[in-house]
């Protein structure tokens, strides 16, 4: 019988949407017993309540201690290892949080880690993308591997629902010695009122063709009209037009919105790896031969500085 433990990702107040997607992955392994651990500071009750409300969760484990108020992998990992007894699967979202943490947990347990699970074939067999998503590998854990440790690719799973019932929340304590060699100093974040890029149903992105940080105003205006998140290609981030947290692609965020509008983005393979699970892709580009048109459901060739404002005005 399998028993899954998910490590929740949150910012201290709000649960990250990738956790509910990881839950869907976990339920595909075993719908009978999925528990979620919340490692957080002393005030993490709000996050625990959000986790408890998710449909299909059997139990929430609350590990509240001062050291857990910021996500440092070297601090979280020994606590998760201590919790691991009795579980057959330990899974976190395949975000920078989960990718940082889970290999450390796996190595401490002496087992391999499976990155970017996109489909569960059997409790020990999974599909995952390799070569920037240009090939799909079906991997099976070797016999004798006692626990599967891995990360679930958020773009491959729909978020589990919430609100039907509340799972019990249990406070747990661990005795693991926590290292002091890694010290979190701060998070530098761009203030934004727009929806979260990773979970937004609609995303408008700009690329090198936008030309400058100021010119990104046309992208933001369309995004705001649609209630969409704003994203960017690597080229736009490298050029310094916008901050790294807006980057969509192999490096950056892998997303699956219902609607993705790419403006002035040529469609490098690394960018396409980040959007291939999108519902509808719209491309606006002046180069009719740009690779983005090979994957776009709807394309329009022309100057983005004419077309994007025109689209914004035409939308009801």
């Amino acid at each position: 019988m399998t028993k899954v433990l998910i490590i929740a990702e949150h910012d201290g107040e709000k649960l990250n949407s990738s956790t509910a997607k990881t839950l869907t992955c976990a339920l595909a392994i075993d719908s009978a017993s999925v528990e979620i651990a919340v490692l957080g500071g002393l005030q993490c009750d709000a996050v625990c309540d959000q986790v408890a409300a998710l449909d299909g969760v059997s139990r929430v484990l609350k590990l509240a201690r001062e050291e857990n108020s910021v996500p440092v992998a070297a601090v979280y990992a020994p606590q998760i290892v201590e919790l691991a007894a009795g579980y057959t699967h330990l899974i976190a979202p395949s975000t920078t949080f989960g990718k940082d943490l889970m290999p450390r947990v796996a190595a401490l347990l002496g087992v391999p880690s499976v990155t970017d699970v996109m489909k569960v074939i059997a409790p020990d067999t999974f599909e995952r993308p390799i070569y920037a998503g240009n090939a799909i590998d079906t991997v099976q854990l070797a016999e004798g591997i006692s626990v599967m440790v891995g990360t679930a690719r958020p773009a491959s799973f729909k978020a589990a629902g919430s609100g039907s019932a509340a799972a019990p929340i249990e406070a747990v304590e661990t005795s693991a010695a926590l290292p002091t060699h890694s010290r979190y100093i701060e998070l530098r974040q761009q203030a934004s009122d727009r929806p979260d890029l990773q979970s937004a149903p609609k995303v408008v992105s700009g690329g090198r063709g936008v030309g400058s940080g100021d010119n990104f105003d046309v992208i933001y205006a369309l995004a705001d009209k649609l209630g969409a998140a704003a994203g960017a290609s690597r080229a736009a981030v490298d050029a310094g037009f916008v901050a790294n947290d807006m980057q969509v692609g192999q490096t950056g965020k892998v997303i699956a919105p219902d609607l993705y509008i790419a403006c002035g983005i040529s469609g490098a393979i690394q960018h396409l790896a980040g959007i291939k699970d999108a519902g509808t892709i719209v491309a606006i580009n002046s180069d009719a031969d740009a690779p983005i048109f090979e994957v776009a459901d709807l394309g329009i060739v022309g100057d983005l500085f004419t077309l994007v404002p025109e689209l914004e005005k035409a939308l009801p």
């Binding site: 799909i136 590998d137 079906t138 854990l141 776009a296 709807l298 394309g299 939308l315």
Partner: peptide
């Protein structure tokens, strides 16, 4: 090796859709 590959396959490709001429058509 703790993990073995049972097989590698190409991903489901996306097909190119259609090009529209005007913003009105796009909307």
């Amino acid at each position: 090796p703790g993990v073995s590959s049972l097989g590698v396959r190409p991903p489901e490709g996306r097909q190119a859709g259609k090009k529209v001429e005007t913003v009105e058509e796009l909307v």
